[in-house]
């Protein structure tokens, strides 16, 4: 067994163990409740110089966006590993993470739109580069899931993986868009000393952890669905092959 193969087997076994642990469900619930408690208990509703209760949506909006970026990064890594190794698990992981990531991107757009309706007096702003690039990410991953809906053949999986690798370019692009182009509403916050986005850091960190755990929990279930679907197909194929075999003595 080569070093790469041994490392791969260990990685797959570790992820499978992580996905099957029940502690993940309880931890997600616990941290999720703690996150809500901190948002509605200690977080400040003053942000960008405006004090309004709607600013409290920012804590899950940012958490969802961070988890979405993580999910789509996992999709990218899964696609690369699947094309390199052709191990089914990486394809299941990439697809599952893409689906959960797509859900998180959608919820980021919904919560952001609700936030913008009150603060910017607009549901959507085409002049804001972060909004537009994030919408492009949404369309790219809608396309990725559409390719998968064509069927589970190896050719489809390889095509989707190549698409997942190329399409990933839009994710970091969206995150650095406010540095590359002039933002109108979303300002650069990380590493910007002039930022006006004053947030309650513990509440934000807790919401990022909560969303990360929720992502892992959903990913675990989605990977399990893909593995079971694959097993079912194999069992059915084996049964069909046995039925097609000529029986002895007849």
């Amino acid at each position: 067994m080569s070093t790469l193969t041994r490392a791969e087997v260990t990685a797959v076994a570790t992820l499978r163990r992580l996905f099957r642990t029940r502690a993940l469900t309880y931890l997600t619930l616990l941290v999720g409740v703690a996150s809500l408690g901190s948002i509605f208990g200690i977080a400040s509703d003053a942000m960008y110089g405006v004090s309004h209760p709607i600013n409290l949506i920012a804590y899950w909006h940012i958490g969802l966006a961070t988890a979405a970026a993580g999910a789509l990064t996992v999709t990218f890594l899964g696609c690369v590993l699947y094309l390199l190794t052709e191990t089914d698990f990486w394809e299941f992981l990439a697809h599952a993470s893409g689906e959960v990531g797509f859900l998180f991107v959608t919820l980021t757009l919904v919560t952001g739109s609700v936030w913008g309706r009150v603060i910017w007096n607009s549901w959507w702003e085409w002049t804001d580069i972060r909004l537009v690039t994030f919408l492009i990410v949404w369309f790219i991953y809608a396309g990725y899931l559409l390719i998968y809906s064509a069927g589970g053949a190896n050719r489809v999986a390889r095509l989707a993986s190549a698409y997942g690798i190329v399409g990933f370019v839009t994710v970091p692009l969206s995150y650095v868009s406010t540095r590359l182009w002039t933002p109108t509403f979303h300002e650069t916050t990380v590493g910007n000393p002039d930022t006006q986005a004053t947030v309650t850091v513990p509440a934000l960190l807790l919401s990022v952890v909560a969303m990360g755990l929720l992502y892992l929990l959903l990913l675990a279930s989605r990977v399990r669905v893909r593995e079971l679907e694959s097993r079912l197909t194999s069992v059915r194929r084996a049964a069909a092959d046995r039925a097609a075999e000529p029986s002895g003595g007849e």
């Binding site: 209760p53 949506i57 899950w60 959608t106 919904v110 919560t111 009150v118």
Partner: peptide, 15 residues
Amino acid sequence: EPLLLVGYGAVFVAV
């Protein structure tokens, strides 16, 4: 705030 409820409600329902 009604829209805060809508935002968090949308996340809860979807999840």
